[in-house]
């Protein structure tokens, strides 16, 4: 037996054990794959871990950059069975768009909590209730380590997946860089879309939206980024055909850094 492989086995066993330390209840390795091998391969559970907290933010101030993040979450929840609790600060979400991403209006109960503190309390209340597909909380304020830990623990216990939709008010919001207990942290920004007809770029019209999807933090994994096509009518993302072989181009990084 090669010493290298024995070490690998021991390491894998230890990693698996560590992953279960301090995780009571229904928290499991169950995950919802994106259905795109390039993305799922970079996630430790080969998909979005269920029964965990995930953070999703837009690429800038929420009012104009946040729509894609909400649509990404709607697409994920569209593919999970059960009712969805969507906790709002203010009612500006437009349900027909969620329905177009596959999230039927009969499945979503909205709770308008108003203040960020009330949003967090309501999210925790919802997470204690098993049998939900997921809980979404829209947060314009900070998400502290303690608050996120409470949400993560509640999600593990009930097995309900939780999304904190970070609706920041400014560019490069420092609050979005604070550490939290979330399993993953995502950033979704818009990219210029491809022409609707690849063969004739001058034809007017709009094709599928294109997003720069960044995994900026991942428990047990490495940051990564992809260029994807937006959620379709069943909530599935697509990998941009002309971007399949390259990671996010540096040009877009510069653009965002420049504001």
């Amino acid at each position: 037996m090669e010493p290298g492989s024995a070490t690998a086995i021991v390491l894998a066993d230890l990693k698996a054990r560590i992953a279960h330390v301090g995780r009571p209840g229904k928290g499991s390795d169950a995950a919802l794959p994106f259905g795109i091998p390039e993305i799922d391969a970079r996630l430790p559970a080969a998909g979005l871990t269920l029964g965990a907290l995930h953070e999703v933010a837009g690429g800038g101030p929420d009012i104009e950059h946040g729509a894609a993040a909400a649509l990404l979450v709607a697409g994920v929840l569209a593919r999970l069975p059960g009712p969805v609790l969507w906790v709002l600060e203010r009612p500006d979400l437009f349900a027909p768009a969620l329905a177009a991403a596959g999230l039927h209006p009969d499945r979503v109960i909205y709770a308008e909590a108003g203040k960020p503190a009330a949003v967090l309390l309501s999210m925790e209340e919802c997470l204690r209730h098993d049998g939900l597909a997921g809980v979404v909380g829209e947060l314009s304020g900070p998400l502290t380590l303690t608050a996120s830990r409470r949400l993560q623990l509640a999600a593990e216990r009930s097995g309900v997946t939780c999304f904190a939709l970070r609706r920041s008010r400014s560019h490069d919001d420092a609050q979005l860089k604070e550490p939290t207990a979330a399993a993953t942290r995502w950033r979704v920004s818009a990219l210029p879309s491809a022409p609707p007809l690849a063969s004739s770029p001058e034809t007017p019209g709009l094709g599928r939206s294109r997003w720069h999807l960044e995994l900026t933090r991942c428990r047990g994994g490495e940051p990564a980024s992809w260029i994807v096509e937006a959620s379709d009518a069943t909530g599935h993302l697509g990998l941009a055909a002309d971007a399949r072989d390259r990671s996010a181009p540096a040009a877009w990084e510069r653009r965002r850094a420049g504001g």
Partner: peptide, 10 residues
Amino acid sequence: LIGQKTETDL
């Protein structure tokens, strides 16, 4: 609700 996986009393 459509697709409700358990008999949850919401």
